[in-house]
Simulated scan of single mutants.
Amino acid sequence: MVSEVNANPASDQGEPKIRATDVSVFYGEKRAIDNVSIDIHQEHVTAFIGPSGCGKSTFLRTLNRMNDTIGSARVEGLIELDGEDIYRSGMDVVQLRARVGMVFQKPNPFPKSIYENIAYGPKIHGLAQGKAELDAIVERSLHRAGLWDEVKDRLQDSGTALSGGQQQRLCIARAIAVDPEVILMDEPCSALDPIATARIEELIDDLRGRYAIVIVTHSMQQAARVSQRTAFFHLGHLVEYGHTSDIFTNPREKRTQDYITGRYG
């Protein structure tokens, strides 16, 4: 049953980076998420899977308070980042979103140069003392996103002129530039071709361990390739959470097995 979901698979040691306890999300009177508890650790990529409308993206957005931008949304329960309640009064939400960055389904570079896309965050957060430091942050971020060699000679070109896959890697570089601790990815490959998707998946693997990464994906194959922990959502409930290999080969819940084997979804 849902109440028996283990929020922390047995082999995960140490304190979680993010701990969600009895989290529910409402849009007006409609309950979209029902009492979800889950621990997310730094060393793993965690995938959220489930059919459309199951609540996985809604829950993802609670982790950096993106639901605050929706007037009818209300979050109940406790979400902690390194033990700190992110919904407490007085929480600096701008700073929270620098610590917990997000990459969206559709690439959304700013209508600025490639350089300014990366430099914008460090500038407003005061992370660079001068142009030399800013240049170093831009180069380092583009290197980490696997994009530097492709754009180093055209940093003043518009970010919107890049291909879709390059734009998505630019958005990942933009998130990295403010030195986050967590990166949330909401179906980051759904608008990309297979080659660009493979590049993003390689990038996720390269970034693993440096950041806690959570990815929402409709592709079970992608979840199996990139994640070490998988959470299966259905109708607003967290049905099952565990090692990715166990979820796909030996699920405990019938609903998980039915979804994995294509009986619904």
Rank of each mutant, 00 (worst) to 15 (best):
D135Y: 00
P251S: 08
G164N: 13
T261G: 01
A20Y: 08
A175F: 00
D68V: 02
R19N: 11
H218E: 12
R154Y: 10
A161G: 04
I176Y: 10
Y115S: 07
G165K: 08
A132R: 14
A132S: 14
F26Y: 15
P111N: 09
C171W: 02
L60W: 05
G159D: 08
T62N: 07
G236I: 07
I114H: 00
S163G: 09
E139W: 00
V214Y: 03
A191S: 15
T21F: 05
K17S: 12
E116T: 00
S163P: 01
E133G: 10
Q95N: 15
V182Q: 11
G165E: 10
R140W: 09
D39Y: 00
S163K: 02
R263N: 14
Y211N: 11
A231E: 03
A10W: 04
A173H: 04
I247Q: 07
R65I: 06
R255C: 08
I195R: 11
F233S: 12
Q95D: 15
E29S: 13
P122G: 01
Q13I: 10
K254T: 13
A231S: 11
E4P: 04
V2Y: 07
I70A: 07
I49F: 03
I124Y: 03
A47W: 04
Q129R: 15
T21D: 15
Q129A: 14
Q167F: 00
I260H: 09
Q105C: 07
Q105R: 06
A161S: 15
K131T: 13
V151Y: 01
R199T: 13
I114Y: 03
K56W: 03
I114R: 03
Q13H: 08
W148Q: 09
S190M: 01
L184V: 04
S89E: 15
V75I: 14
S158Q: 13
P111E: 09
D157G: 05
R210H: 11
G55Y: 02
W148I: 11
V5L: 01
I137N: 05
E29Q: 13
A224Y: 13
I260Y: 12
Y115G: 08
F48Q: 06
Y259R: 02
Y27A: 01
V178D: 01
G101C: 06
K30W: 11
V36H: 07
D39F: 00
L81Y: 03
G209P: 02
Y259P: 08
I183F: 01
E201D: 09
T244V: 05
V151G: 03
E181C: 05
Q167D: 08
E133R: 07
G242E: 09
C189F: 02
N67P: 00
F104Y: 12
E84R: 13
Q222W: 04
G262W: 04
V138K: 06
Q168R: 02
T62H: 03
T217L: 06
K123N: 10
C171E: 08
I213P: 10
K30E: 14
V2A: 10
K131D: 14
H143W: 10
K30V: 15
A198N: 06
